Amino acid sequence: MLVYLPPFLSASLGVSADTGGIVMLAATLPMLFVPPLGAELYPRSDGDGISHWLSRS
């Protein structure tokens, strides 16, 4: 879906290509930095993952 974001921003909001690129950068940077963080935190957990954490009530 991120492929369609720059043309959508350009057509609907009238933003420039530079602004659309900055928006894309803001949308994709978390996809680059969050997975290594999760890989670092997973061994510190008890190994059950988030499903165990969510099932606690």
Rank of each mutant, 00 (worst) to 15 (best):
M1T: 05
M1S: 10
M1D: 05
M1F: 10
L2D: 03
L2V: 01
V3A: 12
V3N: 05
Y4P: 01
Y4M: 14
Y4L: 15
Y4D: 08
Y4E: 14
Y4A: 15
L5W: 08
L5E: 07
L5F: 14
L5K: 09
P6N: 03
P6K: 04
P6W: 06
P7Y: 05
P7I: 09
F8A: 14
L9H: 05
L9Q: 09
L9R: 02
L9P: 05
S10W: 06
A11N: 12
A11P: 01
A11W: 14
S12C: 13
S12H: 13
S12M: 12
L13V: 01
L13K: 06
L13R: 02
L13T: 04
G14E: 00
V15P: 09
V15S: 09
S16Q: 06
S16C: 09
S16G: 15
S16W: 04
A17V: 03
D18H: 08
D18V: 15
T19R: 14
T19D: 04
G20I: 13
G20H: 01
G20S: 15
G21E: 08
G21L: 11
G21Q: 13
I22Q: 07
I22F: 10
I22W: 11
V23W: 03
V23C: 07
V23H: 02
M24A: 10
L25Q: 06
L25H: 06
L25E: 01
L25G: 09
A26C: 08
A27G: 00
T28G: 04
L29R: 02
L29T: 12
L29C: 02
L29Y: 05
P30G: 06
P30Y: 01
M31G: 05
M31T: 13
M31E: 09
L32W: 02
L32N: 02
F33D: 04
F33I: 14
F33S: 06
V34A: 07
P35V: 07
P35L: 01
P36V: 08
P36N: 08
L37P: 03
L37S: 09
L37C: 13
L37W: 06
G38F: 14
G38R: 12
G38S: 12
G38V: 11
A39C: 11
A39D: 10
A39Q: 12
A39I: 13
A39Y: 09
E40G: 06
E40D: 10
E40W: 15
E40Y: 15
E40Q: 11
E40I: 14
L41M: 12
L41I: 11
L41A: 08
Y42H: 03
Y42M: 10
Y42F: 13
Y42A: 12
Y42K: 11
P43I: 09
R44Q: 05
R44G: 01
S45R: 06
S45T: 15
S45C: 04
S45G: 12
D46Y: 05
D46A: 11
G47T: 01
D48A: 09
D48P: 01
D48F: 03
G49M: 04
G49R: 03
I50Q: 06
I50N: 04
I50T: 08
I50Y: 05
S51L: 12
S51N: 11
S51F: 07
H52E: 10
H52Y: 12
H52A: 15
W53V: 13
W53E: 08
W53C: 07
W53F: 13
L54V: 04
L54P: 00
L54G: 00
L54W: 03
S55K: 04
S57Y: 00
S57P: 00
